[in-house]
Amino acid sequence: MERHLTLETLARLVDESPDEREAAHLDGCPQCRRELDGLKEQTQVLAALPSVRPGAAPWKVLERRLEAEGLVAAPGRPTRRSGAARKTAPRTMAWSRLAAGILLFLLGAGVGSSGLLGTSGEGSGWAAAGPGGIESLLASAGALSLAEAQEVLATTEEWHRLALEQYRERVMAEAGEADGHTGDPHVRYALMESLLEVGREALWAAPADPFLNGLVLNVQVEQDAARMGMTATAPDRIWY
């Protein structure tokens, strides 16, 4: 007597067509057909499982965390600041002097004239000057106090974010984002991958940074969308 098909084989046949031998067996074996029907029904019900309510009072717990991170406004306080608001926040004189110096350095190095941090950075004064220019600038500012050093750190973080924002905008534009998803999904996917790589590298340095986390998550989602666009156009989408 021919042996029954294993459950794993039958589980595969939920998605795939049986080969000749498997089909012949199924034709003559009501037990295996019953098992296969059961597996198909199980898969259908899994796909339609309803949502599940979270446990008790989870919003209150979440709300406290959101408040602690400044992601929702505490009662009586203004809402969280936008990126633009952060950029115009008041700074000390020490910061202002150094920020002005860095800005002049960047503009003088040609970044401003070629568009801030061009897509590839090739040929920009910024890339050519390297970190040595900034080091010189910092050295010329003399010994910094703790507060001033913190200001410099905050400034460079701000610049880093700004640079990433600019980079993201350029990549998105290149990917056809600005034209309403008319770009080739393969190109979009590759560009998202490059952006993801930059974002992940930055996250190594600042894993808790909300901006960087947001950037990486958003790019992941956009890359997923690009991947779906790729598979939707592929003739062998359901390959398994």
């Binding site: 959101l66 991170e69 929702v72 986390n213 947001g214 950037l215 998550l217």
Partner: peptide, 12 residues
């Protein structure tokens, strides 16, 4: 949810 709220300003 925390990640989502952090990333929300960048949701396009």
């Amino acid at each position: 949810w925390i990640r989502a709220f952090r990333a929300l300003p960048g949701f396009r």
